[in-house]
């Protein structure tokens, strides 16, 4: 399973991610993404990958979900 993660030191609030994956990403009042960090469904994966590729700051990544047991 995979989920979205933001490197906050890179994110400049361009907002493309929220346009490409509006079902998972909204923007706060300052333009920074609010991410639903739960595991992505198979249907969401392709638009999630597009959002990751489109981030001008390379701040958005798809990360494998680590369960507490495997941590």
């Amino acid at each position: 399973m995979k989920h979205l993660q933001v490197d906050w030191t890179r994110c400049d609030g361009h907002g493309l991610c929220a346009r490409l994956l509006s079902e998972r990403i909204t923007l706060d009042e300052w333009g920074f993404p609010i991410i639903d960090g739960r595991d992505l469904t198979v249907r969401e994966l392709s638009s999630a990958r597009l959002a990751v590729r489109s981030c001008p700051r390379l701040a958005l990544t798809l990360e494998p979900t680590v369960t507490p047991a495997s941590r």
């Binding site: 906050w8 030191t9 994110c11 400049d12 609030g13 706060d28 009042e29 300052w30 333009g31 920074f32």
Partner: peptide
């Protein structure tokens, strides 16, 4: 000053 939500959020 690295992370937007911290910079703008804490100031607000």
């Amino acid at each position: 000053g690295q992370c937007g939500p911290c910079v703008f959020g804490l100031a607000a």
